[in-house]
Amino acid sequence: VNIYAQDKGISVNKAKNIVKVERNPKKMTKTSLGLVNNKPVWEVTYLNNQNNICYDLISFKTGKIIKSIQNI
């Protein structure tokens, strides 16, 4: 079990807003907290304007998009 203090990173709403501003999704489908290389990330999945599934990993600590998979 990994425990992370909320005040040490961005909120789920902030993560969604980052994707909304950067990607302009048609619809967000899921947002969850995950781990990549033992570091916490927000995993955000959404549909783009072409109705393709997309997936972004956002750093919990910095709010930067660290990985993006488009048009799955």
Score class of each variant (00 low, 15 high):
1 V>S: 03
65 I>K: 03
14 K>E: 13
37 N>K: 12
6 Q>G: 07
28 M>K: 09
51 N>H: 12
3 I>K: 08
55 Y>C: 04
35 L>A: 03
8 K>N: 13
64 K>A: 14
29 T>F: 09
7 D>F: 05
47 L>F: 13
3 I>Y: 04
61 K>S: 12
54 C>M: 13
50 Q>N: 15
34 G>N: 05
33 L>T: 01
71 N>I: 06
25 P>M: 11
24 N>K: 08
10 I>F: 12
11 S>A: 11
25 P>F: 13
72 I>Y: 08
7 D>L: 07
25 P>Y: 14
16 K>S: 10
69 I>G: 05
20 K>A: 09
9 G>D: 00
18 I>F: 08
5 A>I: 06
31 T>V: 07
41 V>D: 00
14 K>I: 12
12 V>K: 15
32 S>T: 02
17 N>E: 15
13 N>L: 05
34 G>D: 10
25 P>S: 12
25 P>G: 13
64 K>D: 15
46 Y>V: 04
56 D>A: 15
72 I>W: 07
13 N>H: 07
24 N>I: 05
62 T>C: 10
11 S>C: 10
28 M>F: 10
19 V>S: 12
58 I>W: 03
26 K>I: 14
14 K>N: 11
38 N>D: 00
26 K>Y: 15
30 K>H: 12
14 K>R: 13
54 C>S: 13
26 K>Q: 15
5 A>H: 06
68 S>L: 05
6 Q>D: 07
26 K>N: 14
9 G>I: 00
60 F>S: 00
12 V>Y: 15
69 I>V: 13
51 N>R: 12
71 N>R: 07
62 T>H: 09
44 V>T: 03
66 I>V: 12
27 K>P: 08
16 K>V: 01
68 S>H: 08
53 I>N: 12
44 V>F: 02
67 K>W: 04
50 Q>Y: 15
48 N>I: 03
20 K>F: 08
67 K>M: 04
40 P>S: 06
10 I>C: 09
66 I>R: 00
52 N>G: 10
54 C>W: 02
59 S>P: 02
43 E>Q: 04
62 T>R: 12
39 K>N: 11
44 V>Y: 00
62 T>A: 09
55 Y>M: 07
38 N>W: 00
35 L>H: 03
2 N>I: 00
39 K>V: 05
2 N>D: 01
31 T>K: 05
35 L>P: 02
